[in-house]
């Protein structure tokens, strides 16, 4: 297969970037999208130029490192699929493929297709945990949790922290990312103790990082490679408002 690639090149955060066009021949349909980029990079290097920088590690859809904006969609055209799991057989021979980094104020570009997602980390520092010290845990089965709830908590916990939800959102909102964690913990007994404080702090941090608000277009769910449901945003909002009510009552 042959492709024309239009790739965002940017030397660093200070310099302005631009698209560069690369024709690429003899791509195998069995190649993954990132293997296709490896193949391109090999040719770029052999011609004496600097390769396209992009993030990746596990190459099996679970570490959340890779995240490219492909033909106007985070992680490309396939639903429930990360960039590294996407294969070239999903594209048409001769197609032009446009590849960009995530675009969001809270994710500044570092180089080429690499962005800084440390804002996501800080949201977790603010409250993405259950305060249980090592060695303090009771026997696991002393606290039964219905399978239904446990499975739901798992669905929320499946987030890989890639940032596609933010990239997909017209407002660059991080609601789905924060909601997934907040909901996971709010649903289970271990997490309920700190639920109100958690939602408060995490939402505050999300705002401080410059992520936008949610206008319910559901683009995040549509483009989430793990199919995380927007229902968790509703659950987060409920938690958030009830935490406000509690505070007012206390005051």
């Amino acid at each position: 297969m042959d492709f024309t690639l239009k790739i965002w090149r940017q030397k660093n955060a200070q310099t302005k970037g631009s698209f560069k066009t690369y024709p690429l021949k003899d791509v195998s349909p069995e190649m993954s999208f990132l293997e296709m980029l490896d193949y391109l990079n090999k040719q770029i290097i052999e011609q004496g130029d600097e390769p396209v920088t992009f993030e990746h590690d596990c190459r099996e859809g679970i570490c959340g490192s890779c995240g490219l904006y492909i033909n106007g969609r985070p992680h490309g055209p396939m639903r429930n699929t990360t960039t590294c799991e996407l294969h070239m057989r999903e594209f048409k021979d001769g197609e032009t493929i446009v590849i960009e980094p995530w675009r969001s104020r809270a994710f500044p570009v570092i180089k080429d297709l690499v962005v800084d997602r440390s804002s996501f980390e800080r949201i977790m520092h603010a409250g993405g945990f259950i305060s249980a010290n090592t060695g303090t845990a009771p026997e696991s089965n002393s606290n039964p949790i219905s399978k239904l709830i446990a499975d739901k908590a798992f669905d929320a916990a499946a987030c890989i922290g890639c940032g596609a939800c933010v990239a997909a959102c017209q407002n660059s909102s991080a609601m789905l990312y924060a909601a997934a964690k907040i909901a996971q913990y709010a649903m289970i007994p271990q997490g309920k103790v700190e639920a109100k404080e958690r939602v408060d702090k995490m939402v505050k941090q999300m705002d401080a990082e410059g992520f936008g608000f949610c206008s319910n277009t559901y683009g995040c769910e549509f483009d989430c490679p793990k199919g995380i449901s927007v229902d968790f945003i509703a659950l987060m909002n409920r938690e958030f408002f009830s935490s406000k009510v509690c505070k007012q009552k206390q005051a």
Binding site: A137, N141, P144, F154, Q190
Partner: peptide, 20 residues
């Protein structure tokens, strides 16, 4: 101890219908 600790941290291990 590891399993108990993870349960306390909210790790969503698979459960049976009785909740164990």
């Amino acid at each position: 101890d590891v399993i108990d600790h993870f349960t306390a941290l909210g790790v969503p291990f698979a459960r049976d219908y009785g909740g164990s």
